[in-house]
Nucleic acid binder design. Sequence first.
DNA 1: CGATAGATGAAACATACGTTGCAGGCGGCT
DNA 2: AGCCGCCTGCAACGTATGTTTCATCTATCG
Lengths: 297, 297
Amino acid sequence: MRAEDIHDRILANFDRLPGQLKAAARRLLDHPDDVALLSMRELAKRANVTPATMTRLAQRLGYDGFEQLRQPYADALRGRRDTFKDRAEGLLARHDLDGDEALVADTLAGLSGHLKSLSAPATLATISRVADLIITHDRLFCVSVRSGFPAAYLASYLLSLIGEQTILIDGAGGVGLDRLRSLTPADAVLALTIAPYTSLTVDAVALAAERGASIVAITDSLASPIARHATETILVPTETPSFLQTMTPAFVVVECLAALVAAKRGKSAVKAIAELEAYVARFGVYTADRPTKRGRS
Amino acid sequence: MRAEDIHDRILANFDRLPGQLKAAARRLLDHPDDVALLSMRELAKRANVTPATMTRLAQRLGYDGFEQLRQPYADALRGRRDTFKDRAEGLLARHDLDGDEALVADTLAGLSGHLKSLSAPATLATISRVADLIITHDRLFCVSVRSGFPAAYLASYLLSLIGEQTILIDGAGGVGLDRLRSLTPADAVLALTIAPYTSLTVDAVALAAERGASIVAITDSLASPIARHATETILVPTETPSFLQTMTPAFVVVECLAALVAAKRGKSAVKAIAELEAYVARFGVYTADRPTKRGRS
DNA sequence: CGATAGATGAAACATACGTTGCAGGCGGCT
DNA sequence: AGCCGCCTGCAACGTATGTTTCATCTATCG
């Protein structure tokens, strides 16, 4: 039930309400923000009404008590962004109750909510700035290991595809951060880690900060050790109904960044792809078995 | 004093804060809405912290008590409500977004639609069957290169995390498909490629079919060369507003599979994670700078 | 007019709140 | 090693919360 529904319900019965309840109801309609942010007693005082009246209003509207009535107002203030909260009770229980498919459906619904939260104006603006930042720097070093590695790899892969100079740092072969030696202020670093934070990524950012390179942090909190050194920080949600965390929002951010850089580069990006494809085709990387002529990667 | 100022103040002192206060402060940074809408005790519980710690944090930041700290967060919430309402009214009128942000917003909207299409009953059922298939086989070989590689890596990483036997085949080091030599009908192969299809992946599937292994194909068409040999096929959409294709749906499918397998494995999955974390901690893979001492969110 | 059902306010109630004092524990310093 | 200082969890405190009870008041109808 949403706060607006409560308002509808109030208005439907408004004329039939006795005087004091009417005054109380009016207060809710006129100052919805107060409902979640003030105590019920304070609310009653401002409506010139006894505390008991507020409880009675809630009951008259069909709720057990005032607390139940308050909740929708709180949700409205949040912008109803937590999709997971109500179902985050254990994964195992859910599996027993509703079956596999319910778990998957919940996960998908939650991710959908996360994507929506990424389109908050502030995040959009940050992503756009980061795309510019990538374009205006010589090289982009992508750093991440473990769960964050797929996104870093994808950033490196896609941006290379469209002609950017990128270097993937994943600690493979035990070379650690050796490749960061050549960092200059003309370079940028894209670092990605969520709690628990990986040392390699954190060290890379610290080093990059020392060298004066620009730093883009994709992470889960402003308090993250990599966020505090970063030029730009993109915060990504990671909660799922399971105890595993999701990297999908980070992955999506990377895809958006690539699309944005491609758009800004325009024709030169398309040309870079065409060249690479021709180059790669000679080595038989791709099969001849293509479904139609439309596809490309 | 505004909530943002508080955040600045927190970040300025963050490194100097003792562990528990850090965990508490982190909660404020990451969930500012909760500060005004939840009780302090509830807030403390969610940060895995004693109620007293919250009071102490407020005092350390220069406030008399928690109530004083809460007020700015409440103000911020009231202020934002108006801007939210304004946006909700002209949501489709995205003209105010500049080109960059519109592109990102469109991409996100498209992905959101793709996620919804994944929750079609048929797809849900397939994913569930694949999870069972993984559990009932000895080992899982994850095969993919190029754009699909992140998803294959993630599958291998997550499933290993929860105790499954997985082997990642990515052609690194030029060893190609050598590791598939040991394939038996008791093994399963998770293969992933979209048009243009990569030879390595297609060859791997052909080989696996010969050997009688079970095959899960994540791909973009029933006509895909890997779909035709597959025991189970999961179709993923790949279109975006850009000329780049998206791997996000495939990535999401993998995360769902991992969650499902974890749920089916139950406690043994949790135990596997705990063991691995203890193991890995000895090598300093993770920094000490963790949000709480107990747990992952 | 008297009876009665509903509305109202005051006060009592159990509960949860935010805070504080205390004692144990850990790490850094001489 | 021994000391000191700072964290930290626990338990208790006084207070404010939301609810309920009860007595009083009001309005309506026979």
